[in-house]
């Protein structure tokens, strides 16, 4: 089944119905495995048991960026290839991405509290994630502001792509601004020199959360397709009522015209 075949929403729905249970099962298994391994992981010599927050913070932070990437690819699909499923994918991903970004912020702040003594520090990473969160919210506001889904899709696609180009620039500027205002006394989250006893549970958790996103995303895309069907059927209903009342049969005696229209 190729990408072209998936352009047919009915085929996509069929595929989703077949794949979703397996994806959900895989997510649950991996999540359980990851949580088990995370509970067995030793304490960090510096951070103590708070290092356990890393096992959920890092996957959420990773997803906050991955989801924007997925939306950017979908936006290219909307603008360049005009793939019919692309705007459905972009729209369904936005609230999920915003939730993961919110969780990354929340867990980061809870992780920082024992380290910094405050819940919020204008730390470079937290600040860029906060800006990313604001952009997700703006994007969702844009989706909600416009009635016509395809019109909203094209506007959102332009904004998503501009955001994708701008996010690295924003990240770089915030890093620069941060080093200007506070010398590197802030704790480094994560870091590349992770011990194996941390790395393996972290990778399992990251995979599990990625699968979780895929599951939620597919399900939300299915809902979005159904929502559009409802919308088009309601439009048909409205136009039929308007037509039947115009034709003089009256909207109350609509059953005859409905039968004609339904054939």
């Amino acid at each position: 089944m190729s990408l072209i075949d998936l352009a047919n929403p009915s085929r996509f729905l069929a595929l989703t119905a077949r794949v979703l249970p397996w994806l959900a099962a895989a997510t649950v298994i991996l999540l359980a495995l990851g949580l088990y391994q995370a509970s067995l992981a030793p304490d960090d010599y510096q951070q103590g048991a708070t290092v356990k927050i890393m096992f959920i913070h890092v996957p959420n932070a990773w997803l906050s960026m991955l989801v924007w990437g997925v939306m950017s690819v979908a936006s290219l699909g909307t603008l360049v290839w005009r793939h019919p499923l692309a705007d459905v994918a972009a729209k369904a991903a936005a609230p999920i991405g915003a939730s993961f970004t919110f969780l990354a912020l929340l867990t980061g702040s809870l992780w920082g509290r024992p380290m910094w003594g405050t819940y919020w520090e204008w730390d470079a990473r937290l600040t860029s994630v906060l800006i990313l969160f604001l952009m997700y919210l703006g994007l969702m506001a844009l989706w909600r502001a416009v009635e016509d889904p395809s019109r909203a899709a094209r506007a959102a696609a332009v904004l998503t792509l501009v955001g994708a180009i701008n996010l690295p620039i924003i990240k770089f500027s915030v890093d620069w601004w941060n080093t200007l205002h506070q010398p590197a006394s802030v704790m480094r989250m994560g870091g590349s020199t992770l011990d194996k006893s941390f790395l393996i549970p972290l990778l399992v958790m990251a995979t599990a959360f990625t699968l979780l996103f895929l599951t939620l995303h597919l399900a939300a895309m299915r809902n979005e397709i159904l929502r559009r069907r409802v919308r088009s059927l309601q439009m048909m209903q409205a136009s039929r009522i308007a037509f039947s009342s115009e034709a003089g049969t009256g909207s109350r005696d609509g059953s005859a015209s409905r039968e004609i229209g339904a054939t």
Binding site: A141, A145, V146, V162, I169, I170, S173
Partner: peptide, 18 residues
């Protein structure tokens, strides 16, 4: 989009942070 004002400011302001 035939929408102006606050929504656009919300969308553009994060981009002007750098």
């Amino acid at each position: 989009l035939h929408r102006g004002g606050l929504l656009m400011a919300v969308l553009v302001l994060p981009l002007s942070i750098p």
